[in-house]
Design a protein around this nucleic acid. Sequence first.
DNA 1: ATGAAAGCGCTAACAC
DNA 2: GTGTTAGCGCTTTCAT
Lengths: 335, 335
Amino acid sequence: MGIQEIATVTGLSKSTVSRALRGMSSVADTTIDQVRRVADELGYVPSSAAAGLATGRQRAVGVVVPVIDRWFYVQALGGVDAELRRAGYDLVLYNLGGPGGDRDRAFRRSMLRHRVDALVLLSLVLDETERAELELTRHPMVVIGGPAPGLRNVGVDDVVVAAIAVDHLCGLGHREVAYVGGQDEAGMNVAVPWLRRDGFVDAMVAHGLAVREDWILDGRFSFAGGVDAGAALFATAPASRPTAVFCASDEMALGVMLAARRAGLSVPGDVSVLGIDGHEYGEVVGLTTVAQDPVAQGRTAARAVLAELDEGVAGPLPAAPAHLVVRSTTGVPRA
Amino acid sequence: MGIQEIATVTGLSKSTVSRALRGMSSVADTTIDQVRRVADELGYVPSSAAAGLATGRQRAVGVVVPVIDRWFYVQALGGVDAELRRAGYDLVLYNLGGPGGDRDRAFRRSMLRHRVDALVLLSLVLDETERAELELTRHPMVVIGGPAPGLRNVGVDDVVVAAIAVDHLCGLGHREVAYVGGQDEAGMNVAVPWLRRDGFVDAMVAHGLAVREDWILDGRFSFAGGVDAGAALFATAPASRPTAVFCASDEMALGVMLAARRAGLSVPGDVSVLGIDGHEYGEVVGLTTVAQDPVAQGRTAARAVLAELDEGVAGPLPAAPAHLVVRSTTGVPRA
DNA sequence: ATGAAAGCGCTAACAC
DNA sequence: GTGTTAGCGCTTTCAT
């Protein structure tokens, strides 16, 4: 059931069979046909391990995610996958499994096994040790979403994204805006939350606006977290309520919208709500957002590592676009 | 940078190093320590391809998904991943990429490369050819969610799930209930949508209730689809409106709820809405649902293939539980 | 407790 | 256009 069998049956040599199977041009067309036919009949299944051993290439790339069940990661993963499949590469998934998962083990044991030829990291900031461990393998690496000291990265500029959002709100006349974001997810070391918050603060300051500490809330980057944050925000007297809430993700924004409704507030009549992402749900409910395209980012990242693999080039990566999509959750502040 | 280097440095033989690295008991503890230390210093990285070639085991299992960006698949994938990681296995993801993806290619080229030791299929019904191709590899296989002729499967009984939902609605006094489901997703050959619809129809009939053709809608198993279906349902005169809507997924139910709100209908005052899944969002908005646990199903499936791999046993799989979670979107029909 | 030697199934020079 | 010959980096008898 190996290449050898085919060789015996066809009376050819192993090498010729190997070449034929890969459709190399130095093999006669008739030979290729014959080999393929026999391989089919025999139910031949190639061994990637053998090929990998011989070539040093596994034709697989690893994708490392902090957790799997977040909209952004799923979308990006899809993008990486699409490009990989096009190139005939397999995708091996390394899920750090969030706070509970054993990050160390994932980084040491599995990934370093030469099972993949390259790595795409999602929103991960590596510490010194991890970087060192990974460099050991000398694999091409790129990270999506979040700056990566020492590594190439594709993603939007989170500070700019926050500024776009704040500019929009201020342009409408808002001066009292709250921010719902998230903290670093226990040990996951994700930079994005901090960057967006910093971008928010900077942009507010640039507009000469005050940033109230109690209007910077943790929405845990989830829908439920958004609801909680919104509830806290809207529980106060109307006078001490922000006129707009900027959320670091659409999922949280959706939660804030629900909280507003529960508090009897109209959006954007009583309060404007704005998110980041371009989530499908947001489109349906008319959420204004700063949209990005994680699928495209995934594709870009995959293409980048593939190019580095094939051509050895590690050129600069194109910037990922983000643009304001004004829908119906933002408007001028109530008088 | 291989096992050989370590052997040379330590003055041991390749075999001993190999054994030491794997912590085999026949090796002296001091030797193990020494070998591990040297391996560390040398920055040794094991080659899974070589080990795989020698043992015939890749220590990896493949997970095949029709599309990646659905709540259920992501959750199940997470469950499979968790169990695999516990066992020290890697997970290679085969995304068929939905209608646009090249299903054939995924099934032939990549998967059959002996890159994985076993397969977990998500909600996929294979056709004859595919089954034959996969059987070729003689890998343990189990499918999650959806019956699989000839294969072991873990998942809820979709017909029963639908019955639970209908029973709840009828128990409240509803007699006019609509169904929002989905069709087979273009070429993905997923059985679940049909089973739930059949279950709905059967249960209705069992309750002596009429099933109106125009109250069986396609919600595309998505939030947006649910909104559309709901809009269609609620656009009619109050008299010809169902008093309850049963959705084959929480995501669609969420959409129907939004449509109800847009139509000025109160839930459950004017119309009851009920879903299937146990989606996080549903919990937040108080959606009544028939909950299942895809993460647990993923774990079960992973454990099953792992057991078959390790012990050669392919015993029966435990049934996946589903239970009614009554929240606030279902109530007695309006008089 | 350790070593020697034979492979695992393929690819890649290098001949012809 | 095809065959020969070496490996790729491990694991695994079988010895010792």
